[in-house]
Structure formats: structure tokens, C-alpha cells
Nucleic acid binder design. Structure first.
Length: 204
DNA sequence: GGGACGATCGAT
DNA sequence: TCGATCGTCCCC
């Protein structure tokens, strides 16, 4: 079988939905199902950090092989996790915007500073679960992802992606414009945001 | 050397 | 709707 990452950025964006993103720290795993992503295709995409072929210390990893982690600090406070895609010297990436928590939920809540509450059946209440991972900065904090993982090969532990089910049926996938790139001119309207339809952990 | 800005979040 | 907060990037 071909490497998961050897396909077009838009195709991979769809295929990532439903897959599990896992990070193991001190032998303990936290993970979630990927439910929302955005594709960025430099150098022509004005919404991308690599627009115009911008090649800096921050964006360098996007110019390398696909399947590695592109991570950056945003607004001086939050990290965003991306998967490098495309081929070397074609700087493309996919931003993971939201997860549905799977493993290590107690640890994720700790890292996020959220006190879990449970219903009478012993299941965590949804209003405490959602803010764990329903945004790009939140999921990084929940999984303990920071600049330390910049450039990491995502086919390897401790930070990796696992296929846990059949690819999602086409009709279960929704698309729309990407979020918070008002500066990107026409590119702000490209329908390169992908999410699982009606999924409650999607960021908005 | 300096200043403007951002693929966000959470409180108001 | 707005402020926090700081590394990166680009210009002077």
C-alpha cells in the first residue's frame, strides 16, 4: 500500500477525517478522532504561511517530505498542529482544527484545566468534553503538543496517526471556507475546510 | 533595531 | 466584541 501521505492535499484532507491522532508521553496516550481540518497549498494560496514561496525557519519543514509535523505558535499563546503534505519543495500542509477525544480523557482535562463532570451513567458530560479539543489551539494543549514536536515524523511514536475505520463516505463530509484568513483575498473563499457533518466537536 | 501582526481562546 | 501575549517576519 502507498504511504498515506503520498496523495494530493485535498484528497488527504478528506481521508484524515475519522482517523486517530495519538500522542504518547511518559508511556501514556492521549488521542482523538480527527473531525475537522483545513488545507493550505502554498505558494499560490494567499492564506498559507508559505504563500509566494516564503521560506523561513518557521515554514522550513513544509518544504521537506510529507508526513511530518508543522507546528507554530499563534498569537503568542497557542500552538497549531499541521501535517506536511505534497512533495518536497511544494510547501503544503493540513491544519488539524478539531478532535473528538478518545484516549486519556482525564489527562486531557488536566492539561486543559477543565474539571470533568459525569452523568448518572458515569459518562463525562458533553459540555465539559467539548472544550477539550474543539479548536486547533485547544487540541494541542490537550495532547501536549508544542514546538518540541516540530518536524516529527508522523508515522512514528510518540506522535502519530492511525487509521481506525473505513474512509468516511462522501456524504458524511462537509466543506466550506477556511476560518480566520480574512487577509487572504480571493483565497478566503476557497472551500478547503473539511469536517464531519453534524459532528458536535467541530470548532464552529 | 523596531514595529506590526497573527490558520486562537475565553471572558464580557 | 475585545484583550492577552510573544515569536516571526519584514522593513528601516
Amino acid at each position: 500500500m502507498k504511504n498515506l501521505f503520498q496523495q494530493s492535499t485535498l484528497d488527504l484532507s478528506r481521508q484524515l477525517l475519522g482517523m486517530e491522532l495519538i500522542h504518547e508521553i511518559d508511556g501514556k496516550a492521549t488521542s482523538g478522532r480527527i473531525v475537522e481540518v483545513e488545507a493550505y497549498k502554498g505558494p499560490e494560496d494567499r492564506g498559507a504561511h508559505s504563500y509566494g514561496g516564503r521560506r523561513t525557519k518557521r515554514t522550513e519543514v513544509m518544504y521537506g517530505r510529507p508526513g511530518h509535523a508543522y507546528i507554530y505558535l499563534i498569537y503568542g499563546m497557542h500552538f497549531c498542529f499541521n501535517i506536511v503534505t505534497g512533495v518536497p519543495d511544494k510547501p503544503e500542509a493540513i491544519l488539524v482544527r478539531a478532535l473528538e477525544p478518545l484516549r486519556g480523557i482525564d489527562r486531557m482535562a488536566e492539561r486543559r484545566g477543565i474539571h470533568l463532570a459525569f452523568d448518572e451513567d458515569g459518562n463525562p458530560k458533553q459540555n465539559k468534553m467539548k472544550p477539550l479539543t474543539n479548536g486547533p489551539g485547544k487540541l494541542c494543549q490537550a495532547l501536549g503538543i508544542s514546538m518540541e514536536q516540530y518536524g516529527h515524523d508522523l508515522t512514528r511514536k510518540p506522535l502519530y496517526i492511525k487509521s481506525v475505520s473505513e474512509p468516511l463516505a462522501e456524504e458524511k463530509i462537509a466543506t466550506g471556507p477556511r476560518i480566520n484568513i480574512d487577509y487572504a483575498g480571493e483565497a478566503r473563499f476557497y472551500p478547503w475546510r473539511f469536517w464531519i457533518k453534524d459532528h458536535s466537536f467541530v470548532s464552529r
